[in-house]
Design a protein around this nucleic acid. Structure first.
Lengths: 183, 183
DNA sequence: ACTGTTAATGAACAAAACGTTCGGAAACAG
DNA sequence: CTGTTTCCGAACGTTTTGTTCATTAACAGT
């Protein structure tokens, strides 16, 4: 509503993005963000209690865009009736959009918070697919699928996203247990 | 050699263990460790430059015991001629020995450092197995195997290690791509 | 047992980052 | 036009950090 609020938030997020691509998260002080955003000290604290909370807000922002169908943008649609494979690829394409920021976060101490959000959103998505593998408990399997996917993305970021989402998706299904290929 | 050094190091490690099982890593100050270990302030800094370095030393200690065959103790032997499956189980049993500390670390901000060490030791172990899956690059596959294993361990810790290493091992091979079961 | 070396002590210090407060200026909504 | 909300930024107290140093105690080798 109030343009001032939106403006300040935007400036803070932009400042954070600018800093995270070139500085380790742990080395970024609140003052750095304030300077980069060109706002007053108390203003920052009126918006976020801590630096971590800012990162959390950033993650929410990021993953809402990726996982929530009715998001503001319709860049790559996440339609409810797409296959599991299509959903996987959809996520990878989205991550590619913010690759610099994501690589920055993953390479820093912000990684943990980021992965926590990633995992929780991903768990929701995996939950919806009805996947079974004989002799293996469901919770175990779900953790394995979400976990492997996350590990793959981390690996992807490590090598600067230098593989196509198509390749990743194909390989991912190759290393999944046999029953999953048939979806 | 010098008993004083060994004594102090031991006291610091013990203090760290005692604190990590009941306090989040990020909330533990160097002073806390000093108080718990009952040593002088400067003494701590003569042994470790930072709290993180202490955690790293702790991780080295932990994983050397698990992964290096010629370790001081021969509790569970990690013989070179055991199968991949046996090695997996061996690691799980070792982790169980320190479950409280490991759970503490994994639930805190120390998680990242811990996992970094875990990953690097594990990569070495996976490297030695000659594993292939058709159509999938080796580096990808190795990352998948090490990554899945780590995710499994994190999940295990999350549910308080309330599953036997035997079960975990069995399930783990169930969800691995087919060619791996034949080893 | 003697002796030169090394470690432990803890008070004191400077520096950094944090999070809060507050009075005044500017922007907002209706 | 007006009452409300946000922004500003200097100032402040707090916490934690990592270092210094003179003193005391423990050690290893002969």
């Amino acid at each position: 509503m109030d343009r001032r609020i939106a403006k300040t938030r935007k400036a803070i997020f932009a400042a954070f993005d600018a800093l995270i691509v070139r500085t380790d998260y742990s080395k970024i002080s609140v003052q750095n963000i304030i300077d980069q955003a060109d706002i007053g000290r108390s203003t920052f604290y009126e918006h976020f209690e801590t630096k971590d909370e800012l990162l959390r807000a950033k993650c929410t922002d990021l993953f809402e865009h990726i996982f929530v169908p009715g998001g503001t943008e319709a860049t790559h649609a996440f339609s409810r009736n797409s296959t599991f494979e299509e959903k996987i690829m959809h996520i990878l394409y989205h991550l590619l959009d913010d690759k610099k920021v994501i690589k920055g976060i993953l390479a820093s101490e912000g990684r943990q918070i980021f992965l926590q959000y990633f995992r929780s959103y991903l768990a929701g998505a995996v939950e919806k697919e009805n996947i079974r593998v004989e002799e293996v408990p469901d919770v175990f399997l779900k953790n394995h699928i979400a976990g492997s996917f996350i590990e793959m993305v981390c690996w992807w970021a490590d090598c600067d996203f230098s593989e196509s989402p198509e390749n990743l998706t194909r390989w991912f299904f190759c290393v999944m247990p046999t029953p999953i290929a048939n979806l």
